[in-house]
Design a protein around this nucleic acid. Structure first.
Lengths: 243, 243
DNA sequence: ACCTGAACACCGTTCAAGT
DNA sequence: ACCTGAACACCGTTCAAGT
């Protein structure tokens, strides 16, 4: 986390003045992330941030030019947390899957930041670029030429963004009992049945089955299932290219 | 647009009091959408909205309970604009493609609202539900069983959301000359070359080729290309199911 | 030179006071 | 009964005034 800052435990290099550490970018982002993770994006204000740090709200401007910079810094920091498992001996499919999974889990671990993560990443932030190489490498090793590799990578990234968004906005706000199996499906069915009869015949058919079927389909398997679809589609591209 | 309201031109049923139409939900949302489309989400405030309508800001609360309701109303209204081409005689693939295209174009026509569209839709707004039946119908006709149809639909929706987001945040803010071909690719290349040498060997290889290649690859074809990937993946599911 | 905090120009929303 | 607008409790940020 810290690089060459005074270490909290070791307190060498003179005791921190007035009994508390000096303000710096890292400490600010740490406090901001704590606020956002625990209380949500709308709780983050420069004034609240100052209070959290025990300093004048304006002091933050010494280290970051404004609120927007604080939030971008947060996104950047969260991206730097993304860790891929070692890819030794894995197939390109396994590597694409591992990448997408690591990315969606990064989003899951900061649900209140998801909206900003997917927006900033879509604007091709440097943070996103830092993290993308293993995805491109896997697709390259699949034998895809440059244009197809970029297309496949974009497809995977777009899907993960959309999926992270859908998980976030359908998640229980951290209180309440863990969501039951097929709660989503039963909610959809209820909504559908509240509509004028037979406006949505297919969806009704689909969700009637899914709401009954109480297999342990929580939301992770649907992410994996979608990745199956994407990987099959990408595989089809490799045949096109070989044949 | 209006259903049984006093028509602006015909001015039957008594002239509007004080020379202007009475306030209603529809007129409020109309004004709000104008503000958002022309000046962006951050320009929308209850006070600004009141000014746009020539009424006291508080009058809006008579018709909508708060700002959040105004924005949801906006999303709802935009969804109701989605129009699919008639699907007569089309294959299921063509119908899925037509659905995804109509959806992304809806997002394109309100770029400043995209973030809210994809968030609200991900929360399964009623508006989204209204619009989804043709997608499910196409996938059902592809021969997919309920679970697979729902999975495929979710994959398509998540991808479209992510893609709409990526188009929005990389779009020119409406001023400036139309973006040149491969501007994105050349921007990526510049970013990559600014990084420490060979940190990103694969991306460098990929974007060196794409930045050179000045074919007319604007951004629409990449959406179509991604849909090819998705459709190929979904097709693979139908074989699994048949075989 | 550095930092602070008062002040500015906004917010969304409540609610008492007016008609 | 209906509507208004003053007021409340916030914002992000500027900048003059202090040390």
């Amino acid at each position: 986390m810290s690089r060459e800052e005074p270490v909290r435990s070791g307190r060498k290099m003179g005791r921190p003045r007035a009994g508390q550490e000096r303000l710096n970018r890292e400490r600010i982002l740490e406090a901001a992330l704590r606020i956002v993770d625990e209380e949500g994006m709308e709780a983050l204000s420069m004034r609240r941030l100052g209070a959290e740090l025990g300093v004048d709200p304006m002091s933050v401007y010494r280290h970051l030019p404004g609120k927007e910079a604080v939030v971008s810094g947060l996104v950047e920091q969260v991206f730097s947390e993304m860790r891929l498992p070692p890819s030794g001996g894995a197939t390109w499919q396994e590597r694409v899957r591992a990448w997408a999974t690591a990315y969606v889990e990064l989003a899951r671990s900061h649900p209140n930041l998801v909206l900003r993560i997917v927006s900033d990443a879509a604007a091709v932030s440097d943070a996103m670029l830092q993290v993308s190489e293993p995805l491109y490498a896997a697709l390259w090793d699949a034998g895809l030429p440059p244009r197809e590799a970029a297309l496949a990578a974009g497809t995977v990234v777009d899907f993960v963004h959309g999926h992270a968004l859908s998980e976030e906005s359908s998640s229980t706000p951290d209180d309440a009992a863990p969501v039951e199996d097929s709660a989503f499906e039963r909610d959809m069915l209820a909504r559908l049945e509240a509509q004028p009869a037979e406006s949505f015949p297919t969806m009704l058919r689909v969700f009637r089955v899914l709401a009954e079927d109480a297999t342990d389909m929580n939301r992770h398997p649907v992410f994996d299932g979608s990745l199956d679809v994407l990987l099959a589609g990408i595989e089809a591209m490799t045949y096109d290219n070989a044949g």
